[in-house]
Amino acid sequence: MSHQSELAIEADGLVKTFGDNRAVDGVSLAIPRGTVYGVLGPNGAGKTTTIRMLATLLRPNGGFAKVGGFDVATEADKVRSVMTLAGQFASVDEDLTGTENLVLLARLYGFSRKGSKDRSAQLLEAFGLTAAADRQVKNYSGGMRRRIDIAASLVVVPEIVFLDEPTTGLDPRSRNQVWDIVRALVSDGATVLLTTQYLEEADQLARRIAVIDTGKVLAEGTPGELKASVGTGVLHIRLAQQEQRVTAEHLLTSRLGVVVEPSSDPFQVAARISDPLLANRGISELHEANIELVSFSMGQPTLDEVFLALTGKDTEHSTAQSEASS
């Protein structure tokens, strides 16, 4: 087997422009078969445009891409037979019932009349939607809607599955269920390309992650490697007075010897600390220095912090937030 055939998806210098806007500006990807690959980035980073090019919905202006070994530009029909697309843009018909949507797709794939009904019933049962089978999709809740969207893209399970922000806007319970589906897909042997705005999601599911912003890949690697670039854990401290921030940062650096991350929020201090005991000491030190804390928490670096560490600049989201709070 050649090296190339082990890759489910490969892209080299993909470019898509809309007028003056370079929505995707030279994205290269190499995604091995049978894995989950996460594309992480804020809104408008170029994630969806990239997926749409890989799914043959948009024609790249430059670069090339192969999906399942087929060129997206010249072998679009073959690409369509090895991949499926679910997400914010590939939708189901809201006027039709769950069953009708799945039967429609099954018929299009070539299932017989009876075969379509059987396949539809099987999928609805597997996705916990049997009770809603005969209801119009517009009457589904958000979580159910997402499930029928995903079920509709799995009427035929091809080698490669594109999931475009499958959990955006979902409550934690529905989100966990979508994660279970993704894990089941991979254990069934599929390759999943997943876009997300959440570092936690990419961390939970993906073997490798590409962080993209303004149409470019900023970093690529395993979740561990990416997080190592910002520290394995972060102590977030919220101060009562922003004038005390410099003192607080100085104190943490000098007494504990930890690295303090830059933050766009003047009330926030983020220090790389993975050991809870050390964090505890840090809090005590601040307390003794009469620095008033509003709250503190320990956790993984957020997507904002990953972006800050990778680019030195803020995501639009956190900029907007700090502007609103100042």
Partner: peptide
């Protein structure tokens, strides 16, 4: 409240592994 049911992992796996593509239909059938 919302009529949503839990997802059974075994059923999900069974449904996924039964997802082979049938013979591709023609233009008229589509």
């Amino acid at each position: 409240e919302d009529g949503i049911e839990e997802i059974s992992h075994d059923r999900l796996l069974a449904a996924l592994s039964a997802g082979a593509a049938p013979k591709r239909p023609g233009a008229i059938a589509n």
